[in-house]
Nucleic acid binder design. Structure first.
Length: 639
RNA sequence: GCCCUUGUAGCUCAGCUGGUAGAGCAAUUGAUUUGUAAUCAAUAGGUCCGCGGUUCGAAUCCGUGCGGGGGCACCA
């Protein structure tokens, strides 16, 4: 005689054991129709699960995240079923729900083609139409292993072997012919998935995510509560593609890549201007924050890298070069050893600390070819790098300074939301555990003091110390890791850095590594996508184009162009033999914030007519007023 | 690095089952002198990514290398 407590606090009394479906029916006919899954005392259960005790129950529909998740999970199963029906001999492995959809990994010799994807989709659709009933069975462990081995599903057998013996093994049947080992829960029948799904792509994926294992074929799909949700999702993907920095970079003539140097950027004038603007902005910020800018060699003797530990720990990612005198040099993958050498030059006292050394250093890292991705993952990039040499007692306050600086900078560039990820000691590392203890405690203390949201990444720290990473969220909700702050109690000692303390004894300084943009290249890629190429006026690489209405006004246009440039606003004048409409379209497409139109009216009144990007409103302005207004907007916080 | 996929003019792309290339835009030249998102015409432009093979004949088929894309792994 279970008494069921509903989320609103009401109780339902049943005379006998009851299923979720019966509870839903009791509440309302429409809920029964929409019900997908339920939770019993907070635990998700199949709707046909028999409840025999008092408990609290919540019914979920497609409107709930829990409901949508089960739809996706079932879609993964139905996809696996369709695949095994169409391609006998294919082995199933795992098929979890992911953000916006699901995937399933299969073991099959022949690759799945796009055409196969269509066929699978059609078959899935048929399975949904058949409305196959779902049935859960609990299997005995040994029997399950033996069974899956017998039918040639060696991956499933391996999965079962890795499940703790205490756990119940459940097998879900969808209809009479197909079943899969699965924790569940699942929908009551296949029609509940609906038709708002789509298979999106095939890719390779290592068994158990380990590159030492064989590669399986992963089919990705997306699935939603309604066709409208699916359409909206596909639309969002399309919008994101329009912002792709590789596409915009070409269209806006910012940079290009080519075969001779994969993963290295050929910056064009406009892209490089943007690059320099960001550096100059950062330079001014850092100057105010007490940093000293330096520059150190890009090529350094192998002996230094051996001493620092990079040769051993990072060697396979380093470019090297042998010179005619048979010495081996490495092209720097990081700036730290160079900065320690700057610190080491001349005797340092505790009065010099904290010493904040910064460099816009270009580093080279031999990244795996498959990792390269436009500006976001390159092999040669410029860091806004800095190393802060300080005493142990200064760690926390210096970390806080860095955090404050980073938040200010992200805000100026249009990113309001920032999250912190804290990463502690990795398995491969240098230094004693005692030292690590100290470093981790100090950094975590600083993280807590920022009062920002943070998560912990176990074992993901740098080989020389724990780190935090700053993650920012862009205009369309994607997260990007940019800045980093690392505490290092190892490298300074390895490279013999020391200072004379108050008491006259020699001490090894603590070093903090930090980068705010991280990689300038990557940050620019993110900026392009964040703004969809429509940069705020102050960082726009080309702020204005002066356009004469006809050739008769070329001289006036040139004179305006000169005045605008003199006022520190970047500009070009378009004297090409095209008409006004053509030029407006041309420069609008290359996302110039302001077009300055000059014709008879403007000549007569010594003015320009402004046309802003994405607006067809015209605004006439006296040229001196224009110069005054817009040269004042040439700094952050101006949109 | 691994799996799949892809590489034709400066750009975007067409070129069916093998018969040595085509469009639009851009460029150049000429005409037009234009008031807010493409004026008209003519001209020029290609080792069809590289190398090897099959074939009477390869942009097309096969092999291989390099680059790009989507994932996986990697991201100190």
């Amino acid at each position: 005689m279970p008494i069921i407590t509903l989320p609103d606090g009401n109780n339902l009394d049943f005379p006998k054991k009851v299923t979720g479906l019966e509870i839903a029916e009791k509440i309302s006919k429409s809920l029964a129709k929409q019900a997908l899954i339920m939770s019993v005392n907070g635990e998700l259960k199949d709707l046909y699960f028999l409840i025999d005790k008092d408990c609290s129950v919540k019914i979920f529909t497609a409107k709930d995240p829990e409901g949508l998740e089960v739809i996706r999970h079932d879609a993964a199963h139905i996809m696996a079923m369709a695949v095994q029906e169409l391609y006998p001999g294919t082995q199933v492995t795992i098929g979890p729900v992911i953000e916006n959809g699901f995937y399933y990994d299969f073991a099959r010799k022949e690759p799945f083609t796009d055409d196969d994807l269509n066929k699978i989709e059609e078959r899935m659709s048929e399975i949904v139409d058949k409305d196959l009933k779902t049935r859960r069975e609990v299997w005995q462990r040994d029997k399950a292993i033996r069974h899956f081995k017998e039918i040639g599903e060696k991956y499933k057998a391996e999965i079962i072997e890795s499940i703790p013996e205490t756990e119940e093994l459940s097998v879900y049947h969808h209809g009479d012919t197909w079943y899969d080992l699965c924790r569940g829960p699942h929908l009551v029948s296949s029609s509940k998935i609906g038709k708002a799904f789509k298979l999106t792509k095939v890719s390779g994926a290592y068994w158990r995510g380990d590159s030492k294992n064989e590669m399986l074929q992963r089919i990705y799909g997306t699935s939603w509560a309604s066709q409208k949700d699916l359409d909206d999702y596909l639309k969002r993907i399309e919008e994101a593609e329009k912002r792709d920095h590789r596409k915009l970079g070409k269209e806006m003539d910012l940079f290009h890549f080519r075969e001779e140097s994969p993963g290295s950027v050929f910056w064009h004038e406009k892209g490089w201007t943007l690059f320099q603007k960001l550096i100059n902005y950062m330079r001014a910020k850092q100057d105010l924050a007490g940093y000293k800018e330096v520059n150190t060699p890009e090529v350094l003797d192998r002996l230094l890298w051996e001493k620092s530990g990079h040769w051993e720990k990072y060697g396979e990612n380093m470019y090297t070069s042998e010179t005619p005198d048979e010495k081996v040099f490495a092209i720097k993958p990081m700036n730290c050893p160079g900065h320690i050498q700057v610190f080491n030059q001349g005797l340092k006292s505790y009065r010099d600390l904290p010493l904040r050394i910064t460099e816009f250093g270009k580093v080279h890292r031999y990244e795996p070819s498959g990792a390269l991705h436009g500006l976001l993952r390159v092999r040669a990039f410029t860091q806004d790098d800095a190393h802060i040499f300080c005493s142990e007692s200064q760690i926390t306050s210096e970390c806080l300074n860095v955090t404050n600086l980073i938040l200010e900078i992200y805000k100026d560039l249009g990113f309001e939301k920032v999250i912190i990820k804290y990463a502690d000691r990795p398995e491969i590392r240098v230094g004693e555990d005692k030292v690590w203890d100290k470093a981790e405690t100090s950094l975590l203390e600083a993280v807590k003091a920022t009062k920002l949201e943070y998560s912990i990444n176990k074992g993901e720290g740098a080989f020389y110390g724990p780190k935090i990473e700053f993650v920012l969220r862009d205009a369309i909700g994607r997260d990007w890791q940019c800045g980093t702050l690392q505490v290092d109690l190892n490298l300074p000692g390895r490279l013999d850095a020391s200072y004379i303390d108050k008491d006259g004894t020699k001490k090894v300084p603590v070093m903090l590594h930090r980068a705010l943009f991280g990689s300038l290249e990557r940050f620019i890629g993110i900026l392009i996508e964040h703004y969809a190429g429509k940069f705020p006026f102050w960082i726009s690489p080309l702020q204005t184009v002066v356009i004469p209405v006809s050739e008769d006004f070329n001289d006036y246009a040139v004179s305006i162009y000169k005045k605008v440039k003199d006022a520190g606003i970047s500009s070009t004048v378009d004297l090409k033999k095209h008409n006004l409409n053509y030029k407006i379209r041309d420069h609008s497409l290359s996302k110039i914030p302001l077009l300055l139109i000059c014709g008879k009216k403007e000549v007569d009144s010594n003015s320009v007519t402004i046309r802003r990007l994405d607006s067809n409103k015209q605004e006439n302005m006296d040229i001196n007023n224009f110069l005054k207004k817009y040269s004042a907007l040439n700094k952050p916080s101006s949109k």
